[in-house]
């Protein structure tokens, strides 16, 4: 597979994602500038964490106006793989590709910590390598990661099995402990925790590796 890692001004986890793909699952990967016009030739799009445009207005709010974004939308609408992590998740909700919003953490502070997540849905392109209800340890690092949606959206998310990851302990005050959700078609995933930081045991956890391997499994199945 060939992955694009989108590089917005202020993205700062772009290289972490790049190495996760290159060294973790040994697939092709390229950094794609926010001014690029096309994602032709890529099989998956990864939107990294960071502070796009400084996140001064609202996380992800300016990034949605970058030229590459209309290609990301096309990509998502065509059912191809799109993964947004941390700031990438915030950008995807700003774009409306994912439901809900990410607001300031309940304790009003930035938190960096390795937390336990429960894999709620293991039947997606991103989680087929995990078992259902598997507990995995993945780092978080965010100030605005509290997932919020209204009751109607929540019941839709639940009805469609769009909730993929939940925090075991609700670290930031998210609705229903939600840490990651997909769109209805389940080809777009947004999550606040950083699986790309959990690729090697020496960094504390390699529980994130299966997420990237799941994408490969899925693609192999689709291609066959």
């Amino acid at each position: 597979m060939k992955f694009a890692v989108i590089n917005f001004p202020g993205s700062n986890c772009d290289m972490d994602l790049y190495y996760a793909v290159r060294d973790g699952i040994e697939q092709q990967v390229e950094l794609v500038d926010y001014r690029a016009q096309s994602l032709e030739g890529f099989d998956g799009v990864l939107i990294p964490g960071g502070f796009s445009y400084g996140d001064y207005l609202r996380s992800g709010a300016i990034a949605v106006h970058a030229p590459i974004v209309k290609e990301i939308i096309r990509f998502a609408n065509e059912g191809k793989i799109v993964l947004g992590i941390c700031n990438g998740f915030q950008i995807l909700t700003e774009l409306g590709l994912l439901p809900g919003a990410l607001i300031q953490n309940g304790q009003s502070r930035f938190i960096c910590e390795t937390v336990a997540l429960r894999v709620v849905n293991n039947e997606t392109a991103f989680t087929n390598g995990y078992s259902k209800n598997e507990i995995i340890n993945i780092p978080i690092a965010h100030g605005e990661g509290r997932y919020y949606c209204d009751d109607k959206t929540l019941s839709e998310l639940e009805a469609n099995n769009q909730i993929v990851f939940k925090y075991l302990e609700n670290v930031n005050g998210s609705v229903e402990h939600i840490a990651g959700v997909t769109n209805k078609q389940k080809n777009v995933l947004g999550m606040m925790p950083h699986p790309e930081r959990a690729i090697e045991k020496i960094l504390g956890s390699d529980d994130g590796l299966k997420l990237f391997q799941s994408i490969i499994n899925y693609q192999v199945k689709v291609n066959n």
Binding site: N12, C13, M15, D16, Y19, A20, G49, R109, F110, I111, C112, E113, P139, A141, H194, E196, R197, I199, I202, L203, G204
Partner: peptide
């Protein structure tokens, strides 16, 4: 120190709280 991102760049082997920070 938990309000500081200690892991970005995915090279941190020892995070704050031990005798030294270690980055590979």
């Amino acid at each position: 120190y938990q309000t500081y991102d200690s892991q970005v760049k995915a090279n941190t082997l020892v995070r704050p709280g031990s005798d030294s920070g270690v980055v590979r």
